[in-house]
Computed example of a mutant assay.
Amino acid sequence: MLPNKMKFAVLTEKGHAEVRVKELPKLREDELLIKQEACNICTTDYQQWLGLREHQGYPMAGGHEASGIVIAKGDKVGDTYEVGDRVSILYDYCGICDNCKAGMITICQNKKLFGKNYSDEYYGIFGFSDYFIRNAKSFVKMNPDLSPSEAGFVEPLGSVLHGMRKIRLRGGYDTVVVIGGGTMGLLNAAAARAMGVRVIVSGRGEKKLETGRKMGFEMIDAGNTDPVEEVKRLTNGRGADSVIVSAGATSANQQALEMVKDQHGRILLYAAGYPVPELNVDSNIIHYKNLELIGTFGSTLEDFDNAGKMLSERRIDVSNLIEEKVLLTNIQEAFEKASTKGNFRISVMLQE
């Protein structure tokens, strides 16, 4: 018997998350009913819990790094998905605006990211829900052998791959430095390594350094050494071909400017920061050094598909980036742990 109710987590104000219950809508002909199994708490999620992203709105039924199992499908879904398939969840998008037609679904012109797209009452896409109904176009099929928490990495990895395409990595030649040894820093590093380049990660904190080394990366202890000098030493004075800034901080921006190579270097500004970091650079430096400052945000459908394939084929292993699994009923504890400095992803388990 199919469920008719859903249990979900919602942020009601700064520092407070709770579990609520509501009726599931009727399954439409182009939709899938998903038994959602896990949803990882993203930086975007816990920063709102901390009060740093209150512009996103309350009540927020958030969570977007989620995966689950198809348990029913509409009559017109076709054979792309079958009952029993493991899927990872994408954002809702209209599919008809100019951006969507170009595949850029995270900047859909008709569906606001984290907006009230699934409810008149709640913001968000209900990732922290035990069951949910979504349009069949909002999924990527996953390897059933992946754990639910690992399958939930399609969304963050998609955003990483979006940035990777912009910095035009040259396998077997480039050296890439990632500033930031947290979840997204090491995910950027893993994606860059999968593309055949040398990767150096600059991070702080023994747990992050140890995890990075466990994953096989060259790690710079930025808390006890000058990361700019270390990058120059490790590259024989040349500097990095590309620097990925995966820490939203003014100091990280400054380090990137100093450790990138003198000519035709590229700096990818991957991370947002709250409060907003500063970027202080002389425009003549950009001019004379042929320096590229590149912004990246969101993902295309192609990025999401590639992320699903790379995870499913285990070309990227994210198992070390899962800090702990916490039940949905303990959602407040989950947010407390997710926002604890130094922790990796907290995965909320959505089925009792």
Rank of each mutant, 00 (worst) to 15 (best):
V154G: 12
A38W: 08
E323W: 10
G237L: 06
A240P: 06
G239A: 09
I331A: 12
V243C: 15
T250Q: 05
L186H: 07
V140P: 00
G74H: 13
N188M: 14
N224V: 03
D120S: 13
K232D: 15
V177H: 00
G172W: 15
C108R: 01
E258W: 10
C97L: 03
T80R: 10
T225N: 06
L291E: 03
T235D: 07
P25G: 02
D174Q: 11
G103E: 05
D85W: 08
F304R: 06
M219E: 05
E206R: 12
M164H: 06
G74C: 14
L169Q: 11
Q109E: 09
I69V: 06
G171Q: 15
R165S: 13
R314S: 09
G273S: 03
L113N: 12
K325D: 07
Q47L: 14
R314A: 10
G298T: 01
A136S: 03
A189R: 11
G237A: 02
N330W: 14
G103S: 04
G205E: 01
T250E: 05
K166Q: 09
G216P: 04
R168C: 10
P59T: 02
D317M: 11
N117R: 02
K208D: 02
R315I: 14
V21S: 10
G248C: 04
S339I: 11
E121G: 04
E324A: 11
K116I: 02
R20F: 08
Y118N: 02
T175W: 14
L268G: 14
E18S: 12
N99W: 05
N236L: 08
I96L: 12
V83R: 09
P275R: 13
E121Y: 06
V154E: 08
E210Q: 04
K137L: 04
F344N: 06
S246W: 15
F8N: 10
P25C: 01
G63M: 10
S299Q: 05
N40F: 07
F153I: 13
L11T: 04
D130C: 03
R315L: 13
M6E: 13
V177T: 03
V348P: 06
E229Q: 12
D75Q: 08
G124R: 04
N330M: 10
H287V: 06
V154Y: 08
E258A: 15
N117P: 01
L187H: 04
I107E: 09
P148N: 12
K5V: 15
E65M: 08
V87P: 00
G237E: 06
K73I: 13
S138M: 02
G223F: 09
E206Y: 14
G158L: 09
F128Q: 15
S299V: 07
D221S: 06
V21L: 04
K337P: 05
V199G: 12
K325H: 07
Y58N: 11
G182Q: 01
D282I: 07
R198N: 08
D120C: 14
I69H: 03
N135I: 05
V199W: 14
K22F: 07
D120L: 15
Q254W: 03
D174E: 11
G78V: 00
N320Y: 14
V160N: 06
E230H: 02
F217W: 04
I105Q: 07
H16F: 13
N40Q: 11
D120R: 13
P3Y: 13
V10Y: 00
L52N: 00
M349P: 00
E258M: 15
D221M: 03
T340L: 02
A192K: 01
P25N: 01
M349I: 12
E37S: 05
K337M: 03
L24D: 01
